[in-house]
Simulated assay, not measured.
Amino acid sequence: MSATSELAADSGESTGFFGWLFGSDGFHAPSVSEFYPPALLFEGTIFEFNRIELARVIAATVLILLVWLAVRRAKLVPGRGQGVLELIVDFVRLQIVEQVMSKENAKRFVPFLTTLFLAILAFNITGVIPLINIAGTSLIGLPIIMAIWVFVLYLGVGIKQHGLGGYLKLSLFPAGVPKGIYVLLTPIEFLQVFFLRPFTLALRLVGNMIAGHLLLVLCFAATQFFFFEAAGFMKSMGAVTLAAGFAFTLFEIFVAALQAYVFVMLSSVYINMAIEEEH
């Protein structure tokens, strides 16, 4: 028997066992290919448009529409839509920004940070919206743009507050440190201020969205597999994976909001560090 035949025979034995157990040729788990969906428009060009871009466009459009509807006829006694928007603004102002910086400084940055919070939440939540089912932040490009936005802002306010030389001195040569330690500390501070802060902001966000999407796909793909392809008692496992899928959906909603909170909280910290005299 040839090597090819032996390999086919071994494969057949393995497939036969799992075919008897599951009623098919095996379960195919989700992979990173989930984040590279086929093009919907302009395939093979720099303007290629796929399902993730569609999720971003839908999220941005819906967010702009909802905010416009909430503020177009703002009243002293807010209606339901205006009330929800004011509740979110107050949450960002009171529970995030003013927890980090003074009220005077907070007033300057609440509009920016509220916009950032709403945008990240909207792009994250598309991961659990039926027929979209993927977060707009599940590819690194958009989180990087948001992180660069924060990076440029805290550099800008720091330089404006202290001057270029003053900001570099404040950031790279922290006060109260023995001069000999600067040989080790200054390169680390340089990497932190100019590279690690924006990089970790983006990486934390995209990592959580990737993990959440893969968990949901795994649960619901397994549910479909067990209900429609498995045989015998294995079909009952579909109820377990379906329940897990719904539980992870609720958890993913929580993570979507939590990651918006964490991103904005850290952005507030970085901005505050840029305008403080010492840190």
Rank of each mutant, 00 (worst) to 15 (best):
G207H: 14
L54K: 06
I88W: 09
L168D: 00
R72K: 09
F123S: 02
G16Q: 07
F117M: 04
E48L: 07
G165S: 13
L76T: 11
A247W: 05
I210A: 02
G232W: 00
Y270R: 04
N124R: 01
F227A: 11
Q95T: 03
G207R: 09
I125S: 09
E6V: 05
A59E: 10
D90R: 11
A59W: 02
V97L: 01
I134D: 03
A9Y: 07
T15R: 13
L250F: 08
A239V: 11
A135T: 12
G44T: 03
V183N: 04
E189N: 15
D90F: 00
E48G: 08
M237V: 14
P78G: 04
F47E: 08
I96N: 08
V128T: 10
L41R: 05
A119F: 08
V71D: 00
T126W: 00
G44N: 15
L205V: 13
H162Y: 12
V97C: 06
V62I: 12
T249W: 10
G16A: 12
A243L: 12
L170I: 11
F17S: 09
F42D: 14
S138L: 01
F91M: 05
L172E: 11
V128R: 12
F151L: 13
I120P: 15
P111E: 11
V183G: 04
L214S: 01
V128I: 15
T186L: 04
M209L: 13
A256G: 04
V217D: 07
P30W: 12
P111R: 02
L76V: 14
Q259H: 07
T186S: 15
Q82I: 02
L94D: 12
V217L: 08
F123E: 13
V264S: 01
I271V: 15
Q161R: 15
V128D: 05
F263N: 09
L40C: 05
L184W: 06
F199V: 05
L113N: 10
V71P: 02
V128S: 05
F254S: 01
M146A: 12
M265N: 11
A106P: 11
I271N: 10
T249P: 03
L266P: 00
R197T: 06
F227Q: 02
G176K: 02
V152K: 08
S267C: 11
V84S: 11
F17W: 15
G23A: 01
E278P: 00
V183D: 06
G238V: 08
Y182K: 13
V77S: 07
Y261I: 06
A9E: 13
C219A: 14
F18N: 05
L41Q: 05
I210D: 00
